[in-house]
Amino acid sequence: MVDKLLQSGLHWEKKEFRRNEFLKIPGSTDTHIYFIENGSLRIFMTDEKEERIIRFGYTGNMIVSLDSFLSGKPSDLCIQAIKRSSVKIASKKDFYELICSGEENMKFWINILEDVVLQQLEREKDLLIHSPRERFERVLKRSPQLFQEVPNKYIANYLRMSPETLSRLKKS
Rank of each mutant, 00 (worst) to 15 (best):
K24N: 03
I25N: 11
P26T: 01
T29G: 14
T29R: 14
F35K: 00
I36T: 02
E37R: 03
N38L: 07
L41D: 10
M45N: 05
E48R: 02
E48A: 07
K49Q: 10
R52E: 07
R52C: 12
R52D: 06
R55E: 08
R55A: 08
G57I: 07
G57A: 08
G57C: 08
L70N: 00
S71D: 04
S71N: 01
G72A: 08
S75D: 03
S86F: 12
V87N: 06
A90F: 07
S91D: 06
S91R: 06
K92P: 15
K92Y: 11
Y96C: 05
S101F: 08
G102F: 15
G102C: 09
E104H: 08
N105F: 02
F108C: 02
F108Y: 12
I110G: 13
I112Q: 02
L113P: 04
E114I: 15
E114W: 07
V116Y: 13
V117T: 06
Q119W: 15
Q120Y: 14
E124F: 09
L127W: 08
R135M: 11
R135V: 04
R138L: 15
R142A: 10
S143Q: 04
P144N: 13
P144E: 06
P144M: 10
Q145D: 09
V150M: 03
Y154D: 15
Y154E: 15
A156W: 07
L159H: 09
P163I: 00
P163R: 01
T165I: 11
L166V: 09
